[in-house]
Design a protein around this nucleic acid. Structure first.
Lengths: 127, 127
DNA sequence: ACCATATACCTTGTATTGCTATGTATACGG
DNA sequence: CCGTATACATAGCAATACAAGGTATATGGT
């Protein structure tokens, strides 16, 4: 009777699985590729540049996770008006990981596209 | 005090969200595009044709869901040897949905690729 | 007769996820 | 002051992917 369900999750190990699921961490990392942004700004940027709509309740937990993993750093900045903003940017590790994930995404998308080709070509099996 | 958490999930409505998450339902539907297959066969086909590795514990529940939604039909078939096999194939509704999902996937992938272009071009911000 | 192996399907339990809804904090306008 | 806007944060829920284990059928070896 051993019953060791999850010996060592090693959260870093399975990012490929996570990617296949979410794609959202990758999208957020990518949104920070060229500079600092704060939470709501990321949200708007993704929507504008990629039609990727996500809720605040989605973004903030992800930002927290990514920071905890050492992929992001953050800093409070006083705004000229309203609530202060927490700006995020990529660490070197984050930059590296974003690149790796993007490459993997490319392969994954290519594979799925290959599978979808008959579907998109319309020609269904009459049968 | 109203407190209505989920008024009517309408499980059909949010397949776009599910797609962004999983992509797996779509992959399985697509694998059945050109004929009948049984469970383990789908698994092997996806791995061979698209490097998409998934566990049995992933495939069977999905097949059950898809059948319940009327997208698949199934039939037991005696094998020449060993355990009988349950063959699945697409219903007209399944064929239609697969097409819609594939189109949506294409758009989604294009958007994400657009976002990833700077990342894949290597030129990081020296900053 | 018995057991190991192979094939195939199915289910239980768990960690994780995305998200809705809600809460909190700060500042501005009337 | 109260409403509105901006911004960050979290509690709780439904759904997901998966590992692990179980069941059923047949074959081959001893």
């Amino acid at each position: 009777m051993v019953l060791l369900r999850k010996p060592k999750p090693e959260p870093d190990e399975k990012w490929e699985v996570q990617l296949r699921k979410g794609c959202l961490e990758l999208a957020i990392l990518a949104s920070l590729w060229s500079g600092k942004l704060y939470g709501l700004e990321i949200l708007r940027m993704l929507e504008e540049s990629s039609d990727l709509v996500l809720a605040e309740g989605t973004v903030y937990p992800i930002l927290g996770r990514l920071k905890e993993e050492g992929l992001l750093q953050s800093e409070w900045v006083e705004a000229e008006a309203g609530h202060p903003r927490k700006y995020y940017w990529l660490t070197p590790a984050g930059r590296q990981k974003a690149t790796m994930m993007a490459r993997f995404w490319n392969g994954f998308a290519a594979n799925l596209n290959h599978l979808l080709k008959p579907v998109l070509n319309g020609k269904g099996k009459t049968q």
